[in-house]
């Protein structure tokens, strides 16, 4: 057929294993060259592991009323309680709960709500953004105008509104049980807009690329083109936004809980803990406030910095 001998460089003829290629990829390389990313990733991993394995790590079960001893109340960090002799690493709160344990358990709630809310926002946003850009016309106009309107309100207000409505239509006896899910719904619905906007922008670029035209040409359906061709190519920016959104969602949850409209005191999240703690700020029991706040700060900041690095690492323009 053709008399072209294949003179490809040897690097392309023998293929190293998938793992090895992944390890040598630019992505990992850029990670190992960024101290900020490595420290942030370390902090995030430690905190997430702590939350996941809270039942194994936590010295006390803070939500088991039987294990609580009111005599343990207000024990300062690292010192033995004057009545019971119990020692708490980060002290105990007014009800004698171990602050360290409540933080571990609180983080579970915070992270769960954060992840679930971002997942919801991402699903809604990516779907609507993709449809808006691919279908165009009045569908696009309606979706994007709704997005614009929502964007004019602060996300936390939208979340409070949704939370309030949802709580209002829930019978009082179920309110505490569904509070977490309502929280996820509220934060998720308040956050889909940026996903939709970014995906729409990226899709508008991708849908005019020639590989999409080639797919149209061979008769692939609109759905197949959207899901199999365009979607994988617009996921990079989505990943970046999802990471930064995760930090924002955790803070939004904390804000709502701090304002008393979020996680109930029986299932406290970091925000609830901070709300409880701030009552004792000026009476000298600083540890009840400071430790949950520091955890929230470390968690949100690390995720955010990780998102920043991800954006740079995935940006082809910045690659050497």
């Amino acid at each position: 057929m053709t008399d072209t001998p294949d003179h490809r460089p040897p690097e392309m003829q023998a293929r190293p294993s998938r793992l090895r290629r992944a390890w040598e990829s630019d992505f990992i390389y850029s990670f190992t060259r960024s101290p900020v990313a490595m420290v942030s990733a370390f902090v995030v991993v430690v905190l997430v592991l702590g939350a996941v394995f809270a039942p194994l790590i936590a010295p006390y079960d803070p939500f088991n009323p039987a294990s609580l001893n009111l005599m343990n109340g207000f024990t300062p960090p690292g010192t033995a309680n004057q009545f019971t002799g119990d020692v708490f690493v980060m002290g105990s709160d007014d009800q004698g709960r171990d602050v360290f344990s409540t933080i571990l358990y609180g983080m579970r709630i915070s992270l769960f709500v954060g992840f679930a809310a971002v997942l919801l926002a991402m699903t809604i946003g990516v779907t609507l953004g993709l449809i808006a850009a691919y279908v165009g016309g009045w569908v696009e106009t309606i979706i994007m105008r709704i997005a614009d309107v929502q964007l004019t309100f602060p996300a936390i207000l939208v979340a409070m509104l949704i939370f309030g409505i949802a709580q209002g239509i829930t019978p009082p006896e179920y309110r505490d049980q569904v509070a977490i899910w309502v929280l996820i719904l509220a934060i998720g619905l308040s956050d889909w807009v940026q996903f939709a906007r970014v995906v729409r922008g990226a899709t508008l670029v991708e849908k005019n690329r020639e590989y999409v035209q080639a797919a149209r040409l061979v008769g692939r359906s609109g759905n197949a083109i959207m899901l199999r061709h365009i979607l994988p190519n617009v996921l990079n920016p989505v990943l970046v936004i999802a990471t930064i959104s995760l930090a924002l969602a955790i803070i939004a949850e904390a804000t709502l809980s701090f304002l008393g409209v979020g996680a109930p005191p029986t299932k406290p999240s970091l925000g609830t803990l901070i709300r409880i703690g701030q009552e004792f700020m000026f009476s000298g029991e600083w540890w009840i406030l400071i430790f949950p706040s520091a955890t929230l700060l470390a968690l949100a900041l690390s995720i955010n910095l990780l998102g920043d690095w991800l954006r740079d690492a995935l940006n082809p323009k910045l690659r050497a």
């Binding site: 072209t4 460089p9 690097e11």
Partner: peptide, 22 residues
């Protein structure tokens, strides 16, 4: 007429004359 192959990548130049494989 065609020159077989394509220009080597900079990180992967052949030994000797860089054009010799083609």
């Amino acid at each position: 007429r065609q020159i077989p192959g394509s220009m080597p990548r900079l990180g992967n130049l052949p030994a000797g004359c860089p054009f010799h494989p083609r």
